[in-house]
């Protein structure tokens, strides 16, 4: 790792004649660059671009008329650290009743009940989307809370299922095959509705909080209970984490 004052290395890779893939050293840096690209597009200081697609550690720019100049400039941009307080967090009520709860509890060395409590104690961000319209890859659970995908994917995962894979949480917008470990069910939440504006409840950068509810949909306890072990949030460089 470089020191906090150093500019993190940014690699700009060609994607055909009109695209760039910007690779960053961390997921956090990729999210920050994505936010900066959106800011520059809003303020009209980014050349016209058809798609800005964040990935786990990359941002893809597609449909640039002349990518060369941007490719040269981009590594020298001053990208402000990611804001953790902008906008309001989307609150998603979750029944922690998933079929893989026991397996995840065993992996984490917790009781099934504690899995839900730990999972709901953190604030998440949508790092990127994919797999299906409206499916967001939510980050924040850190080292120690990673789970492998299921050895054999399910042929059908119901809409609203809350799953874990690697360091990500995701909510299936509709029933589909899927290999994530299912720990719960999102209640009264429509992730994707093309008739709605915006169609996607979650888009890259959206902050998300999960609220545990019981089988009747009633909130359970306080998700910020200090007795609950805090998920291991990795330290962020240059003190970018803002006070609560």
């Amino acid at each position: 790792m470089t020191g906090p004052s150093a500019v993190p290395p940014v690699t700009v890779l060609p994607v055909g004649g009109h695209g760039l893939l910007v690779e960053l050293p961390t997921a956090e840096a990729a999210e920050a660059l994505h936010a900066e690209l959106l800011r520059r597009r809003r303020t009209g200081t980014l050349p016209p671009v058809r798609e800005i697609v964040p990935g786990a550690r990359t941002v893809l720019l597609e449909g640039l008329a002349e990518p060369r100049r941007l490719a040269e400039e981009l590594p020298h941009w001053r990208v402000p650290p990611l804001s953790r307080t902008g906008g309001t967090a989307v609150r998603i009520p979750v029944r922690y009743d998933g079929p893989d709860l026991a397996e995840v509890a065993a992996l984490w060395g917790l009781s099934e009940q504690e899995v839900g409590a730990v999972h709901a104690s953190a604030e998440y961000r949508v790092a990127f989307c994919g797999f299906a319209p409206g499916f967001g890859y939510l980050t924040v659970l850190g080292a120690g809370y990673e789970v492998p995908r299921r050895a054999s994917p399910r042929t059908r995962v119901p809409a609203g299922a809350v799953g874990l894979a690697g360091a990500y949480t995701g909510i299936y917008p509709r029933s589909s095959p899927g290999g994530w470990q299912l720990i719960g069910t999102a209640v009264d939440t429509v992730l994707w509705d093309p008739e709605r504006t915006p169609a996607a409840l979650l888009e890259p950068g959206t902050r998300v909080r999960f609220e545990p509810v019981d089988s009747a949909g009633t909130p359970i306890g306080d998700s910020a209970d200090p007795d609950i072990p805090d998920p291991d949030i990795p330290d962020t460089p240059s003190g970018s984490r803002e006070p609560r």
Binding site: V15, G19, E51, V53, G55, A56, Y137
Partner: peptide, 9 residues
């Protein structure tokens, strides 16, 4: 790690 895929990739 998952990354954006372009048309024609």
């Amino acid at each position: 790690p998952s990354e954006g895929m372009a048309l024609g990739a």
